[in-house]
Amino acid sequence: MALRVSESQLYLKATRDNNRARQRLQEATLPLTTQQKITRPSEDPVTAARLNRLRRTRGETEQYQEAVGQVRTYHTLVESTLDSISSVVVDLADLAVQMASDNVGSAERSASAKLVEEWSESLKMMGNQKQAGRYLFAGRKQGAPPYDANFLFVGDEDGRRVKVGESRLLDADIPGTEIFGGGTTGVKSLFQTAQDFFTALNANDQVGINTILGELRDAHDRVIGTHVRVGTILSDIDTVDYAHANRLLVQTLQEGDVIGVDFAKATHELAFSQSVLEATIMTTQRLFESINIRNFNI
């Protein structure tokens, strides 16, 4: 059969080509206006599901980063408080060394007791220190100061842990007992030692002062030990934070790759689609001009 081209066929084809060209232009415009490769899941279901997963993972990483930030703030505060505590304990120990000497008399010891009393008060303030509405050394028992009126520990000796990774928890509390002793540790509290020191000085008890010197050295070791642990936690935090920052960067880049528009490609497609539409319209116009019945000269 010879190929016939009927008028309806031309019309049908021209309409189809025009519709296709318009649709292509519309689809080419969308990525540039939305700045996204896809706007509906059905355009690319795999990309849409991948995007959801990436965003969830990124959301989790951001959660963990936020948690890491909070733990860092707490431990940095504890670290500086430990510096102060350590300094007071060193001062107390130095004084104990001096006051344990045979060359020191009762008057000097009695005068020094005042100093010990001040330092003791300072330690007590640090023990019940509150920052941003939170008792630093109360552990989970945030409702009340960790040390009562008699400076006995009534806080929590375990403390909270917070999630900083899918299967990674970090200590978010340093209980007061770890620094000051007392509680269920079986170690005499630093506050009691300071109180005993005060009493010994007033009583001019040289033997007692010597015993306290030993206790103060132990207390100092304990503070240093906690300092080291806090330092280790802060170091862990740096590592975790660095890993999260890297992960976040990769996840953000991945998300960009998945959904972000390649502007060069999108612009090219837009320009090309415009040309296709213009050409289609022009062809259609010429075609219908040429098949006008008045053009048939019989």
């Binding site: 016939r4 009927s6 049908l12 048939f296």
Partner: peptide
Amino acid sequence: LQFYEMREQLSGVALHEEM
């Protein structure tokens, strides 16, 4: 549309042919 085109090829009116 392809089948419609085929139908038009066969059954459609071509003005030049009619002229």
